[in-house]
Amino acid sequence: MTETAATTEKPKETTTAQQRLLLKLVAASVMVKAVQKDGENAFQRYTFQSEAAIKNVVKPALEANGLAIIPSFQLIDQRDEPGKRGTNHIVDVLGTFVITDGVASITGTMLGSGADTMEKAMAKACTSAQKYFYKQLFNISDKDTDPDADDSTRSTQPQQSSQQPQQEVTTGGVSITMLRTFLTTMEDAAHKRHFEPKEVAKVIFEQAGVSSKPWVKLTPAEFGKIDAALDKYIKG
């Protein structure tokens, strides 16, 4: 009798929805560049990065990678304190920010404070929490060297500006990182159901209501539909 050794195929690791979300977040982070200080506080004599400037670099990166950040705020404290120009109303809030691609989500928090009149203090506190959450999440710096990291003898030296490289995109406008992640996930799904990837792709295109075309020619909107269809396919 001849014995035949049984071979066991090692199961292929799959990319989870949470991992896909993290990869999208990384791709968005690559697209976010440094932001110059465009605002000035004449009274206290300092410059700063405005909320608008921060959002202007974050918004396109989120949209290009199919991400949204949903904020909510909880009042922590409010008080009145005397100031040089009268009484200041000070508000402290805790901002909660849900990062999602419509399938998976990650939640982060950031404290914010604002001082002004009653209604403006609250708005400033929420703005502060959101702005600094974006700055920390995407590691947004300005083009100047951190003054706390240098001594005064070096402050007059010209500094070289550095920018993060722009994320590579396909001809349709979808980031290369996202497309590679998607294709890997689709191949995993096909492998689990013993189908060819092209068969799964055909089903996904039909479910998404997108005309069949080369992957690199998908627009961000079409890719979003395809991505959602893949997730439904995997869960189904």
Rank of each mutant, 00 (worst) to 15 (best):
K225Y: 01
A52G: 08
F43E: 09
L67T: 07
L22W: 07
S162E: 01
C126R: 07
D38Y: 03
I99A: 14
T109Y: 06
K143Y: 04
S141K: 08
I54T: 12
A228E: 00
S128L: 02
I70A: 14
M118R: 08
K12Y: 15
A115M: 14
D116Y: 00
V58F: 06
K217G: 03
K235I: 10
R20H: 11
M118D: 10
M31H: 13
A61Y: 09
P214E: 07
S155I: 01
T145I: 05
T96Y: 03
G173W: 00
R180T: 06
T107H: 07
K202V: 03
Q167D: 08
A190G: 12
F182W: 07
S141W: 07
Y233F: 14
K24T: 05
P197A: 14
K143H: 09
Y132G: 01
S175I: 06
G102R: 11
H191N: 12
A221Y: 01
K131E: 02
E196S: 15
G108H: 08
F223I: 05
S212N: 04
K131C: 08
E9F: 09
K131W: 04
R20P: 10
Q207Y: 01
A61K: 15
G102H: 06
E9K: 13
D116H: 01
K131F: 05
R180L: 00
D38P: 06
V174K: 00
D80T: 14
P82H: 05
K12I: 12
F182K: 02
M110E: 12
M31F: 09
D231Q: 15
Q163K: 00
S29Q: 15
L179S: 01
E51G: 10
R20N: 13
S29A: 15
T4K: 09
E196R: 15
K235G: 09
T117S: 13
E119P: 04
M31L: 15
T14C: 08
L230H: 03
A52C: 06
T181W: 01
T8M: 13
T100R: 11
T177E: 11
T177G: 08
S212P: 03
G83Y: 04
L75H: 02
L183R: 13
L23G: 03
I106Q: 13
L67E: 07
V32I: 14
L23C: 04
E13V: 11
F223V: 08
Q19T: 05
S113Q: 09
E206K: 12
A228C: 00
T171D: 08
V103L: 03
L179N: 05
L111D: 12
N65H: 02
N88P: 04
K84M: 06
A129E: 04
T170F: 11
Y233C: 13
Q19K: 09
G39C: 02
Q163C: 01
H194L: 10
Q36C: 12
E187S: 13
A190W: 13
Q19C: 09
A121K: 05
Q136Y: 07
M186E: 00
H191T: 14
S212W: 08
K235C: 05
A208K: 02
I54V: 14
P197K: 14
A229M: 04
D80H: 11
Q164E: 00
A42L: 07
V98F: 04
A190K: 13
G172L: 01
D150G: 05
K213R: 14
G112K: 03
V103W: 00
K192T: 12
T8S: 13
T177W: 11
G83D: 10
T170D: 01
V200W: 13
F48A: 05
